[in-house]
Amino acid sequence: MPRGHHDIGGTTRDAGPIDRTEHQLEDWEILADAVNQALGARGIKRTDELRRAREEMDSELYRSLSYYERWGASMENILIEKKILTREEVDRKVAEFEKKWGEP
């Protein structure tokens, strides 16, 4: 068993300087945070499950996504796992939004 991609304490790969730049959260990030917490408050998912979903992600994806992108991807996977929604529904909704917002 290789160590998980999230289990990075003491690893040399990430031994470089810490980027202390801070960014103002964008609306979608605040939304990702709030939807996640709302699901928790309703007892629909636990943080432990989302963590597990992040650990099960493709390792390259885990490394390349931003923090709230990881939250979103893990939330989607857990909601699909719980049969609350399907990948296709999310895809369709995205396509609908893109059309409405004037995107290809």
């Binding site: 068993m1 160590r3 998980g4 289990d7 304490g9 432990d48």
Partner: peptide, 11 residues
């Protein structure tokens, strides 16, 4: 060393 969600860091 086992698969799954583990709260004990590797190190």
């Amino acid at each position: 060393d086992r698969p799954g969600h583990i709260r004990t860091p590797f190190y």
